[in-house]
Design a protein around this nucleic acid. Sequence first.
DNA 1: GACACTTCCTTCGATATCGAAGATAAAGCG
DNA 2: CGCTTTATCTTCGATATCGAAGGAAGTGTC
Lengths: 379, 379
Amino acid sequence: MSGKERLPVTGAQGGLLRLVATGQAESRADLARLSGLAASSVSLRVEELLEAGLLVEEGSGTSRGGRRPRRLRLAPSAGLLAVSDLGSHHVRLGLLDLSGTPLAVQERACDISAGPEAVLDWMADAFDDLLRTHAPSGMPLRGVCTGIPGPVDPASGRVVGPSRMPGWNNYPVADHLGTRYDLPVLVENDANLMAVGEARSWPGSDNLMVLKAGTGIGCGVIVNGQLHRGRGAAGDISHVRVRTDSSVMCSCGHPDCLEAYASGAALMSALAEAGIVVDRPADIIGLVSDAVPEATSLVRAAGRLIGEVLTVLVNFFNPDVIAVGGSLSAAEPLIAAIRAAVYERCLPLATRDLEIAPARAGKDVALLGAGALLLDAVL
Amino acid sequence: MSGKERLPVTGAQGGLLRLVATGQAESRADLARLSGLAASSVSLRVEELLEAGLLVEEGSGTSRGGRRPRRLRLAPSAGLLAVSDLGSHHVRLGLLDLSGTPLAVQERACDISAGPEAVLDWMADAFDDLLRTHAPSGMPLRGVCTGIPGPVDPASGRVVGPSRMPGWNNYPVADHLGTRYDLPVLVENDANLMAVGEARSWPGSDNLMVLKAGTGIGCGVIVNGQLHRGRGAAGDISHVRVRTDSSVMCSCGHPDCLEAYASGAALMSALAEAGIVVDRPADIIGLVSDAVPEATSLVRAAGRLIGEVLTVLVNFFNPDVIAVGGSLSAAEPLIAAIRAAVYERCLPLATRDLEIAPARAGKDVALLGAGALLLDAVL
DNA sequence: GACACTTCCTTCGATATCGAAGATAAAGCG
DNA sequence: CGCTTTATCTTCGATATCGAAGGAAGTGTC
């Protein structure tokens, strides 16, 4: 079994290690520039980190016109992170090294309605499994983070008022996992994890909105490079009232929520009414690329509604990027309709350099985001 | 004439001075707690600041169970800040000491359509005037900041695409003032200044929206205690499309903007149609307190529309406080209607501890905000 | 009023960081 | 090829910060 020690770093060492881990710095010179420390101090600390076995020197980088930098890498033996993203019927589990690179990722079926204790214990067992099979011996586990499909109180690590997680309300998820791991344990909303992960793929952009268009509609917000949590529900856009002709009651008890018209679930039931039955939102993509007219026009209408909600937020928040992920994001008409609505209605100053694009970070975004958050917690 | 030197502070001294200036710290012990520095280091730096004449020791504070702290104050001779808030027809000018306390404030008539050079030179002359009459000799000017009723590019200090400032588009306001003052010069949107000033009156709340309901509708956003600028237009809510029965074209070229229904200007023309003529938005307050039914119902409707826009932003941003200022904020039905709309429609988690209240900071908010921003620039 | 306790502030040796100067290793160029 | 230029990294004395210990000046208690 792997060890569970805290990383033996003091003071400035942690910051330097993080810069290497996140890939922002590759040499002592990079570290000096980014950390603000004097080059001499950086050299001293790096020396210590090399001796402690947390960093390794690995060949040299490319010259920028002068002496070649000596490339620094995180030592593989520095440690591991256990991360997971819990969905309503599946869970993705992963083992990352400290630089956030996945060593192993699995997807397993998992029924969240079995209740928190059963699910969490099962998850911890799965982590142990992964560690046994994929962790080279001598690599200590440094932290655990899981995503949850519902609001999380950032202070206590409790689930607060989830809509699709019976039995989880107010359950202290972080504390429960903490009894099995004597390590930093983080619990975060799934859309937030996705936002943090996606943000890494947009260097230079400090203000992002990351939309998750799947069964539901989620959104995570990055302000100034940091996840914005608010009171734990920040980023929610699914229960905003939209302008429509008809009137539909949402599960939240209010009429005409965005979710009731533009979520994957809503599209599926609208298709069913037209006699087209699919059982996963992802299947809608296939219908759209097969040019099934009902599907295309429904997706386009959904994009337009989402876009209209985004106009308000773009004027208010002025993001640099809106990244659209989730299973529906592969439908081109969706993003096209979102773009059309936003660019038509927003202030020119707000849209001048705004990029609305499909998410870049791939299937493991949420796991990568979990790794990024953990890095801040363990360094 | 006053001097124009930079403050002679180095390294940690600036941070300590700022903590005293903002009123967060009153003793060496406070400084140690808030700055994170060791108590011994604080003592050394404070000693230097006392010798430099920037701080003074002034009696002792109240005991908290042990030895009484020796109270620290900013030396009055530490310097002055010249601040102003430019409106379309008036300008408020002020002289603050470094702790942000107004020494003198004036309001003068001023036509912004005279163009940037004339207005700015006139403003600088007015500052000179104030300094002559109100500045004790030997008090150097340390910085200048002005608010502008239009979007400002934070990087360049230029006005960008203002709607009611003919001749100002793309004018380098900060640079022009910089030629008269060899000092830090800041230019900022008026609603943003108001937000920064108001934020000081809500200690403990790190996420605020500050609404300015006057002739127009402005909004400033504080995230994590810092002003959120986005690309320079962040906080705009006036050109959001609202749900209404009728259809009105806004000056921005889009139909049904919030501003076209709920701004002071819109209320005035609606009243005029009902045969009630007023010439300032502030006069509407009088009508409301005299219980003129047309005025009350118009104000209530405006509040509801504003509130409906805010629901989207509250769900998304999860602020701790929404402070409502501007000349219309004195109308009780306005805030009541905003509250009703927000609390009815938003997620419980988002509104649980949300406070929607009239602005607290008074008439000089924007000037106080200018002082707060300047403090960061000069220390 | 003696005593313990708390808070505030200073003293002083240990440690961390800085900055200038130099050593090292490459690219660019005649 | 030697020369200049550029960038990286190290050495070393000067400076800033820390932390433990202790003195100063209060409060509260028996």
